[in-house]
Design a protein around this nucleic acid. Structure first.
Lengths: 173, 173
DNA sequence: TATTGTTATACTCTATAACTATA
DNA sequence: TATAGTTATAGAGTATAACAATA
């Protein structure tokens, strides 16, 4: 709707007058959504100069961890729909960052793999992520960042167990 | 892209195999965006039966706090663009929840005010918000919720001072 | 000429589902 | 008949900017 940061040159009086209702500012869910939107658009902006977006990073990051390599498995793991993934892989393949080859044992499947150029691009994506982290989490020290991650992880996992980080689910098996 | 929660009837093995890359799950920003998207669509869904959405709640909540009552002031405070606000106010006015009347001292301006019906609707919106809070924050105790709010508030305010809750800015004046 | 509110337009995302080639 | 990948289409949401009325 309107996610631009405040104009830093605006007089302070305006800034104060334009502040959001206390009722909303007191709601963690409201802030979560607003901050999430801001981060998302900040990320898109930061990735822009690479010609890719955050979703491309997600795909490369997944491939780098091995295990999931057919398009269906990748899409399911990242919770992308398969049609969307096709477009992302087209982009990546066109720039030689991934390869698609047919699975000889089931010729419907495409097995996707990272190329050396893909690994290099992934490294660059990671520096962008790091800079985004520093940018948005600047006001938090390390301990606070860890706490935030733990809280968000709890919320996410409760919403959908697929957000679980190892341990928890395995422990219940 | 795909914000549906996991199918609870899916076998656990699938759930584990489909989990997201550790690299992403370890990034607070990634979780923030994903959780934000989930909350947003959850909110839209919960509000649906009222015939309104979360944005309508924001408008009523602001009006209930007084002070900002012209359309430009409302839009600026909520960080909506003015064109979007027109549509929201149309919806609210059509249902008798707000009134628009021309400002006699500047006939370009519309002064917007809550009606009694609007106040009642706001009360209903608040129960929806409470239930959303409980739904998404269920795994957090009160202390954790307070911590989360404080951390998000820091991040938001650093990104844009208009997210500040009273105190901080006033203190710097 | 600038501002308030309004309307119309265009563009981006994304969700759906039709389609092909294999199994 | 069902599945993997692909493509096309349509719809929601949003950003842009043109517009009429006041100042």
């Amino acid at each position: 709707m309107n996610a631009k940061p405040a104009d830093p040159s605006a007089p302070l009086a305006d800034t104060v007058a334009n502040c959001l209702p206390a009722e909303l500012l007191a709601d963690p869910l409201f802030l979560l959504v607003r901050v999430g939107v801001a981060i998302k658009s900040g990320a898109v902006e930061e990735f822009e100069r690479t010609g890719f977006g955050p979703y491309h990073h997600s795909v490369l990051a997944l491939l780098d961890e091995g295990a999931r390599d057919t398009q269906a498995a990748i899409a399911d793991a990242l919770q992308f729909d398969r049609g969307t993934l096709v477009g992302l892989l087209d982009d990546l393949e066109q720039h030689g960052l991934v390869e698609r080859r047919r699975d000889p044992s089931d010729r419907r499947r495409h097995v996707v793999s990272l190329t050396p150029a893909g690994r290099r691009q992934l490294a660059e994506f990671r520096t962008i992520i790091t800079s985004l982290d520093d940018q948005f989490l600047a006001p938090l020290d390390d301990r606070e960042r860890t706490t935030l991650l733990a809280l968000l992880s709890k919320i996410a996992t409760h919403y959908d167990p697929r957000f679980s980080r190892g341990g928890e689910i395995a422990a219940t098996v």
